[in-house]
Amino acid sequence: MDNSLKGRVALVTGGTKGIGKAIADRLSSEGCKVVVTARTEPKENPNGHYFIASDLTQPESAESIAKEILTTFGRIDIIVNNAGANLSPGGGFSTLSDEHWITDWQLNFLSVVRINKALLPVMIEQKSGVIINISTGAAKQPIWEMTMSYSSAKAALNIYSKALANELGAKGVRVNVVSPGVVKTPLMLEFIENLAKSSNIKVDDAFKAVMDKVGAPLGRMADPEEIANLVAFLVSPEAKYITGINYSVDGGALPVV
């Protein structure tokens, strides 16, 4: 993209591992000044991303993140709301407590709403900015025994993102969604291991069960870099007429067009 992102300030939540790290590293390689958040600072940070420790399930975290970014850099050009996780146990509705539902919605939906609300006034004042909300294919294809509360929170994120894109288009701010399928991340591998333990089956069998449920024709997990490639394009000027779209990166798993 010929360094079209050089000098842009980008925030990537959950940016120290998995998909978030791949996105942060890719944006950095394109010339962005990258800010990443996570609960704990990584032991290694070879690309020198600016780190802010934060627990996004806490309502006050968004304002403190926004204040530090604007104090340090004076602007924000790109927000990638990547932080999220399927934290609840499998087994369907009867296994989910109020706490499970609240935790999944705090992390996967409300944290995004808060981050955007805290930083959007600056983008609107600049008359420019891009927001990418990372969702999941499970928001369209929920797996009741694995992702019920997580899927519902991400489905809300999809609707919110479309509404936000409609509101902000005339103000120079674009909003899009990227919905990965099964991605080879530490969190996904941990999820499969936990599924194997809870189901009393081998890890290989748990992986096969997940892939059978997802039904991706490509027959494999995505690499985090494959998600990052799309995000890097969508935040670039080359995508300046694209807003309000939800992109599936799922190896063909979604059974409709």
Rank of each mutant, 00 (worst) to 15 (best):
M1L: 07
D2P: 04
V9P: 03
V12Q: 08
G14I: 01
G18I: 09
G18N: 06
G20V: 05
K21P: 00
K21D: 02
A24H: 05
A24Y: 09
D25A: 13
R26S: 10
R26L: 05
L27C: 02
K33T: 11
P42K: 04
K43F: 01
K43M: 06
K43I: 02
N47V: 05
I52T: 02
I52K: 04
A53K: 14
D55I: 01
D55G: 01
L56H: 01
E63K: 15
E63Q: 13
E63Y: 00
S64H: 12
S64C: 00
A66C: 02
L70Y: 06
L70M: 12
T71C: 06
T71V: 03
G74L: 07
R75Q: 14
A83G: 07
P89I: 02
P89W: 02
S94W: 08
L96G: 06
L96V: 07
W101G: 03
I102R: 15
S111D: 02
S111C: 11
V112R: 08
R114E: 08
R114C: 09
I115Y: 07
N116M: 14
N116K: 10
N116A: 11
A118K: 09
P121N: 13
P121S: 13
V122K: 15
M123A: 12
E125L: 14
K127Q: 15
K127C: 04
G129S: 11
G129V: 11
V130W: 11
N133F: 06
I134N: 06
I134Y: 03
A138S: 14
A139E: 13
P142H: 11
P142E: 05
I143K: 14
W144C: 12
E145H: 14
M146F: 15
M146P: 01
T147R: 11
Y150T: 11
S152N: 14
K154W: 11
A155M: 07
A156N: 10
N158Q: 09
I159K: 12
I159E: 09
K162N: 09
L164V: 10
E167V: 13
G169I: 11
A170L: 13
G172S: 03
R174E: 05
V175A: 08
N176E: 07
V178L: 10
V178E: 08
S179V: 00
P180Q: 03
P180A: 06
P180W: 07
G181V: 02
G181Y: 02
G181F: 03
V182D: 02
V183L: 02
P186S: 07
P186W: 08
E190C: 00
F191H: 14
E193T: 15
L195R: 14
K197C: 04
K197D: 13
S199V: 00
S199F: 09
N200W: 03
K202N: 14
V203D: 00
D204N: 15
D204Q: 13
D205A: 15
A206S: 14
F207D: 09
A209V: 05
D212A: 14
V214I: 15
G215L: 01
A216C: 08
P217C: 08
A222G: 15
E225H: 09
N229Y: 10
L230Q: 06
A232H: 02
A239E: 05
T243M: 02
T243K: 03
T243I: 08
T243F: 05
S248C: 07
S248K: 13
G252Q: 12
A253N: 06
L254A: 04
P255T: 07
P255N: 05
V256I: 14
V256F: 15
